[in-house]
Each structure stands twice: as structure tokens, then as C-alpha cells.
Design a protein around this nucleic acid. Structure first.
Lengths: 201, 201
DNA sequence: GTCTATATCCAGATAGAC
DNA sequence: GTCTATCTGGATATAGAC
């Protein structure tokens, strides 16, 4: 690829990112169907036709966002699992990291909301649905393993580890959704309240 | 009103209930815009035109459901508050009742999901938005008061009571959303795990 | 009350000029 | 690459027969 081609490629990627970023806000808050291409065009200060220069359809943009959402989430999960720390330490890091993301970065809550919506909705495009099916269990699996290890070393309550994991993620999810409507800075719960669900005293 | 008129009124109410019940499932799972009147017609085995005999618009049906959702929720809150029980007892009853509703009654999770969606979305019709604004704080207020009382009698941790209340509801909400996609019977967390966020040991 | 047929509108996607 | 104009399909809501 020539030098110019490469610059153009980068410009193109920039534009695509801009579209995705505008679309994320809209999709998360309105859902796939209620978000119009004209909304995305307006949000990104492009013409309607130009959007189609970068993406073939509205559903493509949506699916791309779902891909990114899981990529970020799963990457964070694996990093967490590989960290040098006790299970209890990992759980604290997970909650801290997630709460920090939800308060400091507007997009974090939107990504959570997007995944929640896409998982629940039955108008989710097939390609996105497939991605969800393939990746959705990873965060649950990772947290289940960490809880199991914490039960072995005696720091975590002996409930079913899978259920603890589900409760962990549903709690985070509930918070993310609350923050999506009340604002990222609206409120951040005390770390110790959430951990008290899992840690022995 | 004559006897016949009264019977007709009842029949009419029956039909309206049937529409609402079908629409609840669809709205909760697809959102307002993605749900077509033809979907509701199919779900309730009526013709498309007939729906308009009972409701003036799709948004009217939606708004009616939001009204019902809050009516049920707020009524339960007030009953809880008036019950003869200690604050701790009330919190246990609340969680038990909510979990039971979420597992035994399909509609419960759907109502929670509907409220969550309508609160977050910015395509929610104005009338529905007004209802939310007027009623949304009630459940938070009621639980805040109960937590405060529990702090006075020494059974509840001394975190900010409002924040405990928000955490309480976001946790329930997260669970409701999980159940909406994984099925009402998919999993029910142990009562004691959730209460451990709030109760001193 | 219930249905079918249809007017009307609007959104997704495309075509083609620049 | 970017825009404007337009085609096309589909959804809301209405009209009118039964």
C-alpha cells in the first residue's frame, strides 16, 4: 500500500469511528429501530447519503458496535483473570474498574445498555445475535471461576458460584442502566456495599 | 346504565385487557417503535383495524401500560410501608416479594423492563414521560425511609440511605432484565446474598 | 364490533452530479 | 468523498362495508 493510500485508510477509519461514536449514543438510548439514519447523520454532521459510503446498512453499524462492546468487555475480563492477585483482590478490582468506567466514561454505560438491549430484544439483527450468543457467556464464565477460587481459599461465601457470577453482572448492569438515564456522575455506590454480597466477614 | 350496557362495558374492558397483555410482551421486548400495530393484532388474534376501535394510537396503548406498571409498583410499595413489621422484616418481605413475582409471574419482569426502557429511552411519548417523572421517585423514597428506620434501630449499615435505596432497586432491575431474556425460572438468587448488602451481621 | 381496503407518510437505501 | 434527489417499501391510521 502506498503512503497516500495509507493516509486515506486512516482518514476512513477516523470517519467510521465518528459514525460509531454518534450511533452508540443513539442506539443505546433509542434502540435499533427508533434510531434513524438521518439521526446518525445529524449527530455526526454528515449527510445521510455519506453514511452509506462507510456502511452498507443501519444494521451493519449496529452489529459493529455490538462487536466492539464485547471486544472491550472480554478483553477486560481476560486481563483481570491473568492479573497477579488473590480472588478477593480480583473481585475488588473488577468492581472498582467497572464503577470507575461507569462514572468517568460516558460510553461505558452506553455499551452496557446496548448489550442489555440487544440481548433482550427480539428485533436484534441475526449477525449481532450470533455475536451475543458466542460471547455473552465469557464474562459470566470468568467471574464464576474467580468466585470458585475465592471459595477454595475461604474468602467467598459458599453459594453456587455461577449464581454469584450472575448476580454480580446483573448488579453492574442495573447500575449501568440507572446511570444511562440519571447521568454518569449521578451516584456511585460504595465499593464495600457490593462486596459484602460476596465476601465473608 | 342499563344491564346490557353494563355487560357491554365489561366485554369492552376484557378486550382492552387482552390488547394490553399482548402489547406488554411486545413493547417490553422490542420497544415502542419496533412494535408494529400488526404485531399486536397478530398477538391478540384481532385485525389491525380493530385495535383502533379500542385505542386511538399505538402510543396510547404504551402509555396505558406505563400507568398500570407504576400503579402496581407503587401500590405494593405503600402496602409494604404500612405493614406491621420491623424495617429489616420489611426489606426481607420486599426482596422476597419481588423475587417471587419475577419467577412466578412472567409479566412482572416485563413490567420492570418496560419501565426501565421507557425511563432510559428518549423516544418515550410525552404523556408516558410525565407519568414517569411524577411517579418514578416513589419506590426510591419508600425504600429510603425503610432503610433510615433500619439504621435507627441498628440493623442496617450506616451508608447513605438514599444510595442504599438506589442500589436496592438497580439490583432488582438488573435481575428483572436478566430474567426477561433468560426466562423467569432461569435462576433465582438466594435471598441472603442480597440482604447481606444491607444488614449488619 | 369487526373486517378489508386504502390514503398518507416517512424511513432506508440508491443513483448520479460534482 | 460528499452531496441532493429520488425510488421503494412498509407502517400508522382511517374509511367504509358488513
Amino acid at each position: 500500500m502506498s503512503r497516500n493510500q495509507q493516509i486515506n485508510e486512516e482518514k476512513k477509519e477516523e470517519r467510521k469511528k465518528k459514525i460509531l461514536s454518534g450511533a452508540l449514543k443513539l442506539f443505546a438510548k433509542r434502540g435499533l429501530v427508533a434510531t434513524k439514519i438521518s439521526d446518525i447523520a445529524q449527530e455526526t454532521a454528515m449527510s445521510q447519503g455519506l453514511i452509506y459510503h462507510y456502511y452498507n446498512s443501519k444494521e451493519d453499524i449496529y452489529t459493529e458496535l455490538i462487536k466492539t462492546a464485547f471486544k472491550k468487555l472480554i478483553e477486560a475480563c481476560y486481563i483481570l483473570e491473568k492479573t497477579e492477585a488473590t480472588p478477593k483482590g480480583k473481585i475488588i478490582m473488577a468492581i472498582e474498574g467497572l464503577l470507575k468506567g461507569l462514572t468517568d466514561n460516558e460510553d461505558t454505560a452506553l455499551y452496557h445498555l446496548l448489550i442489555a438491549q440487544a440481548t433482550v430484544s427480539d428485533v436484534t439483527p441475526n449477525e449481532a445475535r450470533t455475536i451475543i450468543k458466542e460471547h455473552n457467556t465469557v464474562p459470566y464464565d470468568v467471574m464464576t471461576r474467580i468466585f470458585e477460587q475465592g471459595q477454595k481459599d475461604g474468602t467467598i461465601y459458599h453459594h453456587n458460584a455461577r449464581e454469584l457470577s450472575i448476580l454480580f453482572w446483573t448488579t453492574i448492569n442495573g447500575l449501568a442502566i440507572y446511570k444511562s438515564s440519571h447521568g454518569a456522575k449521578s451516584f456511585t455506590p460504595d465499593l464495600s456495599i457490593i462486596t459484602s454480597m460476596f465476601f465473608k466477614k
